[in-house]
Design a protein around this nucleic acid. Structure first.
Lengths: 211, 211
DNA sequence: AATTTTATGTAACTTGTGTTACAGAACAAC
DNA sequence: GTTGTTCTGTAACACAAGTTACATAAAATT
């Protein structure tokens, strides 16, 4: 995904010039930390390729997955935190090999002022993140763990564009904020129900599990 | 709270003029619905006095409290939803007598373009809401119900600036997305532990409950 | 091949929360 | 005062999820 493909920038190529000329491109391999919890942020990461996984970490080390940032999107929390001179309350890691363009806040300040298309972009991404977060709240508050596991597997299958995903129960448990045994137990149940087929380090989603 | 007191507007009184000349002021009494779930939004509510309570409603009618919008703040989700021609996924009601200035999206579009101070305002509020939501996620995911009840009571005590709040267990239960019996049970436990004193329709927070 | 590490399966148990049901208390309406 | 309504207290139970403990299986390392 190149920046040219971001819908708001198509009519304003000068935005892209500004981003590329002042931004710093950086690559990360799977699992690498991009933004640490409690890190001070002074630039905004725009995903060029790959994917960023955004987690919230509790004071006592428990984590939970918030959402993924896909190519063409940016980490809006980084954006806002930097504007408000705040510290990040989230942890962002690379999901697969990922290339990120870090845009300094000084550039953002200029773009805010001079390019309405940039604002359209920011507001669109913000809405998306916010909406995602609301879904997370809803899921944690009202859904049972088996539903949440299935939803998570479905999402990963869709992202991988492959009915088989490669992940351990432990990793899934961390993302969902629960314990490994719980995930193993429920996945086994789902296998008995014909929703998935399990293997070491992999989960295959069957047609029945698609809906 | 008059708009003059919003920090970003102090150096840009023309924003206030624009808001007042195009906005529509409306008053609500306690509990009245300001934005309905699934309502289409075409204006942004800025709270002048009182307070707006923002809840998320599940498909099957279950609710959970997201946050409060206090005087000088605005409902950012309404803002974004309107920009993206989206439908509201939240329900906003008046918490006590509340006066709201509804600013049409057309005005917002102009302000975005012409007044950097307006953007500063929007971004500040946005950050605040986002941060609030993250705290909600954290609470639901990792805190036990008794902690959440106590936190809720503390928040209400602070907002009321009075150690006694007037609320039924049922109302508290709805806000926390649980059942009334659960709240009654845990509150009673908290009373036994000397954290609160209970009465019909009221909860008094004791010093021991403050920390 | 033998050993170690990592991932999974399973059982037994605890705990927190949701559910149902009902009784009594406080309050409001008549 | 009597009646009806709303709120709270409590008990008994159901169930989802967390916890501990250990066995087995698969992969990696030596």
């Amino acid at each position: 995904m190149e920046l040219q493909n971001i819908q708001e920038f198509k009519t304003a190529p000068s935005i892209i010039d500004k981003l590329l000329s002042t931004g710093l491109e950086k690559s990360f391999s799977n699992g690498e930390i991009i933004i640490n919890e409690n890190a001070f942020i002074n630039s905004i990461p725009i995903v060029k390729s790959g994917c960023i996984k955004v987690m919230r970490t509790d004071d006592d080390g428990k984590e939970i997955l918030l959402y993924y940032i896909k190519p063409g999107d940016c980490c809006i929390m980084g954006f806002l935190g930097s504007l408000n001179d705040q510290i990040s309350r989230i942890k962002a890691t690379a999901e697969g090999d990922t290339t990120v363009l870090f845009v300094p806040v000084t550039t953002v300040a200029i773009l805010n002022r001079e390019h309405p298309e940039w604002l359209d972009y920011i507001f669109r991404i913000y809405y998306k993140c916010y909406d995602n977060l609301l879904e997370v709240v809803n899921a944690i508050a009202f859904k049972k763990m088996d539903e949440r596991i299935l939803a998570s597997v479905r999402q990963k299958v869709e992202m991988a564009q492959n009915d088989t995903i490669f992940i351990t129960h432990e990793q899934l448990a961390i993302e969902l904020g629960t314990a490994r045994v719980v995930v193993s137990r429920l996945l086994k149940q789902m296998e008995d129900d014909g929703l998935v087929i399990l293997g070491r380090n992999k989960i295959k989603l069957l047609e029945k599990g698609l809906l």
